[in-house]
């Protein structure tokens, strides 16, 4: 048996984190006998209470507390509840995790993650450079720290609508300087500076998820077109697709970065058929359960890579397989909530 710790248990109905979906993939992986530990950042993170998917649940310090706070907490958990593999699922925690990888290794905890340099290469502020390197089109992006940019950006050739984004999360399409300033302030409050401005590309969005083998190869890509969007722009329904051009683009990116670890590539296909790279996320997406659904269980593959085991057999991803996301209530005993609140552990 192997124990896998997974973060991002914030499976909120309107904007779920990927952790629960990753756990679910592992639960359903054939010939993987896994005990699963869920890590959350809030006592209301649903995954902490979902006994079907998580055998244990713990709270971690916020990423802003820094890497040593995280290391200490993980060591403390590991002492009473050892785990073999850690799959971080949130962008904001990744810099901390990478900085303590050696400490984790000493505990015997394996990961399969990009290096700090690889992480920087795909940072949203630097996407233009990476795209140029991989010869993929990319909307113009820049970081700003003052909202007055929106008043004068016309001079620099920025046209509305444009997209205002946080370095870690959140993206809003702004149609006017006033819209943009509101989005700017909202994002700056939550995610700080810089705030990113990106040219708005008209077209259809496609997403691809896969795992980089660290040597330039892309393992088991699964591609998806969102077919239903929440008002936050998150998919509540999607369909698996198979698009060679998208796959080629992703492979170029993986090759250019020699990416190691999970990733999600977001592109927009313009009406003329050009693919524009919008974002690379260094983690599995919230819709990762679709990968198990199409027979390409990427979280399972990741666990095996981390443990230097042979890769699981992948099926040919079946284009046309759909997912529809729904909300479900789980019943929580006050004592469990108390235990998370008081001790940061689900008893």
């Amino acid at each position: 048996m192997v124990t896998v710790a997974i973060s991002g248990m914030n499976a909120r109905p309107d904007n779920p984190g990927p952790g629960v979906a990753v756990a679910r993939c592992l639960r359903e992986a054939a010939d993987l006998d896994a005990r699963i530990i869920g890590f959350g950042y809030d006592a209301l993170d649903p995954g902490l209470y979902l006994t079907d998917y998580c055998d244990a649940g713990y709270l971690l310090p916020y990423p802003s507390a820094g890497d040593q706070a995280l290391a200490e907490r993980l060591e403390e958990i590991h002492k009473s509840d050892p785990f073999d593999v850690f799959i971080p699922c949130l962008d904001a925690e990744l810099p901390n995790v990478l900085r303590i990888e050696q400490q984790l290794k000493k505990l015997g905890v394996r990961t399969w993650l990009p290096s700090e340099d690889q992480l920087k290469l795909r940072s949203k502020e630097r996407l233009n450079e990476l795209a140029a390197h991989a010869e993929i089109a990319c909307p113009r992006t820049r970081g700003i720290t003052q909202p007055d940019f929106f008043q004068r950006c016309d001079d620099e050739g920025w046209k509305y609508p444009l997209v205002v984004k946080g370095v870690f999360y959140d993206a809003y399409v702004a149609h006017s300087p006033a819209d943009a300033a509101v989005a700017f302030n909202h994002i700056a409050r939550t995610w700080g500076y810089p705030v990113l401005v990106q040219e708005h590309i008209k077209g259809e969005e496609y997403n691809l998820t896969g795992v980089g083998d660290g040597e330039g190869g892309l393992l088991g890509a699964v591609m998806m077109k969102k077919t239903g969007l929440t008002d936050k722009g998150k998919a509540w329904a999607g369909v698996a697709v198979s698009d060679q051009a998208l796959l080629d683009a992703a492979q170029k990116l993986i090759k250019a970065t020699r990416w190691r670890g999970p990733l999600e590539v977001e592109v927009i296909k313009s009406p003329s058929g050009t693919y524009h790279l919008v974002e690379i996320n260094p983690r599995f997406p919230a819709w990762i359960y679709l990968s198990a659904g199409v027979g390409v269980n990427l979280p399972h593959a990741l666990v095996n890579l981390a443990l230097s085991r042979p890769l699981p057999a992948f099926g040919e991803p079946r284009a046309g397989t759909m997912f529809i996301r729904y909300a479900l209530e789980t019943i929580v005993d006050l004592g469990q909530f108390e235990s998370i609140i008081v001790n940061g552990v689900r008893e």
Binding site: G40, Y41, D42, A43, L44, L59, L60, P61, Y62, S64, A65, G66, A69, E72, R73, I340, I341, V342, N343, G344
Partner: peptide, 13 residues
């Protein structure tokens, strides 16, 4: 007080 979004004893260390 327990307020949603801030329910983490380990949150800010």
């Amino acid at each position: 007080a327990h307020r949603s979004g801030l329910l983490n004893k380990f949150g800010a260390v």
